[in-house]
Amino acid sequence: MNRQIPLIVCFSFGLIMFLQYFSNHTIARTMNLAILDYWQIIFAFTLVLGVVSYIKANMTKISRGIDRPYLIVGLLGMISMPIMALIWGIKADSPFMWMFENVQAPMASTVFALLAFFVASASFRGFRARSMQASILLGAALIILLSRSNLPIPYTEHLSEFADWIRNYPSMTARRAILIGIGLGSLTTSMRVILGIERTWLGGEK
């Protein structure tokens, strides 16, 4: 019974969402929007579980003396945000938004910027033409890079045209094949879920 009710719920909501896609009736549109709202509301409640898991994991480590000062800083950062929001609100010039703009955002942007170095190190290792496949990958990447660089290369216009052709035909056709495969894989996985054949999310067969 513990598993049958979720399976029935899963099937019913799956069927509703599948059918509403093919209708432009007001009821179908309303149901679609309502269920999309449910997703957000369920996420909001589940966030409590996530935050508790974060606090619990950090408290366990702190009590064992692992990375204590750093984890305390993290916990303080987490607790300070709701406190600031509670006291001063979340308007544009509030301390809450100040923390977001001057602490979270610059650090997040820098983590993103680290990618430039990771791209360089990955290229260094990955671009050793060890096989035919690796050589093709390297060649295609180089053509794109050279065609988009400002280096004084002869026949730049032709290179640029060739790079566009590669992107629009051989590269695009492979991308399409990947997407077709993903579409088919998603379709069959979704069907298994709705029909209740796929039960891993419930912990597995029973």
């Binding site: 997703w39 379709l187 996985t189 979704s190 879920v193 796929e198 891993t200 999310w201």
Partner: peptide
């Protein structure tokens, strides 16, 4: 909700 996540769970 994404089928890829379900495949990953498998």
């Amino acid at each position: 909700q994404r089928p890829t996540t379900i495949a990953s769970m498998n």
